[in-house]
Computed example of a mutant assay.
Amino acid sequence: MDLRQLQTLVAVADTGSFAAAAGVVNLTPSAISQQIQSLEAEIGAQLFDRKKRPRQLNAQGEELVRAARSVVQTLTEARMTIAGGRTAGVLKLGAIRTVSMRLVPEALRGMRGRYPDLGFEMTVGMSERLMADVAAGRLDAALVAEHVGVPATLSWSPVLNEPLVIIAPPQEAWRSEVSLLRDLPFIRYATDVPLARQIETELSGLSIVPREVAVANTMPAVVGLVQAGLGVAVVPRIATLHGGPALHCRPFRDGAITRRVGLVQRQVSSRSRVLTELREILSEVALHRGLVLDPTPGRPGAA
């Protein structure tokens, strides 16, 4: 097999069809088909399920695509290094929504200063999906919540350890934590992500039952409802950094409840050096924003 065949395979996987891949690698659809057939003959296995239209990668094809992405990227970067070139290409980064609005943009601004020829592609999604995209090679790395299972092929390094806080309209600042949660309407963050489950778990451990007035499935919406004066909510500190009307904000349970977010990447990655610098910059931004850095490396357990 050669590099051109691997590039073609990756293009087919990314675009979903031979016809669309042809435009990416500047070949005709028939030439794409010939390259794939040649690759299958060399591998000794079919890479696509030909019973489906459009054709879909089978298990063997998915495995080869993961390897092909790494090979193509490694060879491209090696050529640039040998030729004296600078790190270029596109860094594909995933991020959960709460860190995508300020933390990641500020970190990428710092990365741009170090790598002016490097472009960025950010995908916002849920931790489990982002983790799967990193494992499959569709993303170079992703910022995900702690309480998700990390496959053995990936590594997870903490970036921030931030407190959960109670937010309320400014005029309610005189109330105690118990009064805020017992006497004021509550706005619940409801979506299938680790953060929502963590908040629900902590609330269930209290001896009071909040009076729910509204439900929202994004953190900006939760914060917006509180800013509009509808009630109170429990959110991560980072959610209060996005501007807008003033809020009363205090640590939930005296700051004892925190959530960790870390950078997940493949154990073996040609982007390791760049990702190490990205994690350092993310940690610096988090520390500057009051999102306490947890310097202890590790991997979370399964949720």
Rank of each mutant, 00 (worst) to 15 (best):
G23E: 13
L230S: 02
L241R: 08
V213Q: 01
S157G: 03
R138H: 14
L93P: 12
L108E: 08
T240H: 02
V159D: 08
L287D: 15
L6S: 15
V178Y: 07
V124F: 09
I187Y: 01
L154K: 06
G231S: 02
P151D: 12
L293W: 13
L291R: 04
P210I: 07
G61E: 14
C249W: 04
R97T: 05
T296C: 14
F186V: 08
M1T: 15
R266N: 11
R273C: 01
V10K: 06
P163V: 11
L93F: 09
A59C: 04
R182D: 15
N26H: 12
I166T: 06
V222I: 03
Y189P: 00
Q46Y: 12
V159C: 04
N26Q: 15
A196S: 05
A83T: 06
L93C: 07
Q37Y: 14
L278R: 05
G110E: 15
E177H: 04
L154I: 03
A107H: 08
P236I: 05
Q265V: 09
L293H: 14
L278S: 09
E42M: 15
T276A: 15
P169V: 10
A22L: 00
L64Y: 13
A145H: 00
C249F: 00
I208T: 08
V223R: 05
T240M: 00
L3M: 15
E280T: 12
S283M: 15
S33Y: 06
L118H: 08
R79W: 14
V292F: 07
R50V: 06
T123P: 04
P116H: 13
V148I: 12
A214R: 05
I208P: 06
V193P: 01
D133H: 09
V232S: 01
A256H: 11
L91Y: 09
A256Q: 11
L3A: 11
S272W: 09
R66P: 07
L130E: 00
E146C: 02
Q198H: 08
